[in-house]
Design a binder for these strands. Sequence first.
DNA 1: GTCTATACTCGGATAGAC
DNA 2: GTCTATCCGAGTATAGAC
Lengths: 205, 205
Amino acid sequence: MEQLNSTSEEKILKAAKDVFMKYGLYGARMQDIADTAGINKALLHYYFRSKEKLFDKIFENALHKYFERINVFSDSSLPVIDQVFKYVENSIDFYAEYPKISMFIIKEIEINPELFHKKVQVIKKGKSIKMIEALEKAMAKGEIKKIDTAMFFINLQSLCSYPFIAKPIFKHSLKANDKDYDKDFSTGKLKRSVKNFVESSLSKK
Amino acid sequence: MEQLNSTSEEKILKAAKDVFMKYGLYGARMQDIADTAGINKALLHYYFRSKEKLFDKIFENALHKYFERINVFSDSSLPVIDQVFKYVENSIDFYAEYPKISMFIIKEIEINPELFHKKVQVIKKGKSIKMIEALEKAMAKGEIKKIDTAMFFINLQSLCSYPFIAKPIFKHSLKANDKDYDKDFSTGKLKRSVKNFVESSLSKK
DNA sequence: GTCTATACTCGGATAGAC
DNA sequence: GTCTATCCGAGTATAGAC
């Protein structure tokens, strides 16, 4: 899957992302990355010195992208529910594009929690989740139901990301072939159903 | 983490499960499994001949356990909503006990889809999901709202399993330390919130 | 910058003693 | 059944030519 109009470094990063996301740090093979990138194995070391360093780069990029998405919550003047709707749409579009990102992060945390904590501190600098803060405010003003905002957040993340993660299982369980699942399971349908969840969880009547 | 009152074979299976679930087939190391089991590397080969064969055993066990859980749906005389409630409780208890099982299966499908399909055919023999069938029936009788049952099933699985899978991320994002998360995130709270989802999705009024 | 050839380490597997 | 010692292929990394 060589990309013709890109530098070797870009090709390597793209290939490394795919291979590391599939196999993890220890499961991935440098040869596999080189083949995927369509270049020679020695070149990997020329650009990134070692497997660990290359992995580090990929992992860091993934963390950035993920936490950026998680924590965007615009301070617009819209009602908070509409803001959550917007968040849901963006999240689902995001996961449709990067279905494996959260799994990748989760797996690597399991293997190397220290690395994760170190890197996340740099990225997040102790910021708390904006959506939760906004919901707390709205709740205080009586705009929405009284809820456990952290649990709501967990539920929301679950609904938005798990369908993409577990796609291979669902595909099979629901006895649909590739085409059927991808057709049935349009992101549009998912968005509607998650929004229903938001509505019934937050709306007062 | 050697278990004193068990045979070597049992120790190996337990250790192999932990190590394979953490690192996957290619990332796992036989030495690591042997150390975890508190036995010698040669003994692994004595009992299971090869890494692949040992992995196969573990993967098969996981599939069995997982699909058994997914597909239990009692034919009791209870209203279908109560049956779904029951299903939710059992599922959450199950995932609390085996938090990594679905992730393990998903990752390995990604790496070796053929193996998965072969094994699942043996396990499932083409059976479709009982809960979905029950819901379709109830819907036809007008007992519940008109819904997309497959999407409902996906949502339900998401709500029940993702919180356990993503625990390491949530722990961090919600800025709680281990204790806090485990306290806050009681399975009781989760069960209630998922049941609310079921209620508002299915109940006619 | 990119390649081929090669050094060296790691990890799966086996032989053989007990 | 369980261990130590060892073999050998696979995988990371480097040297050096172009």
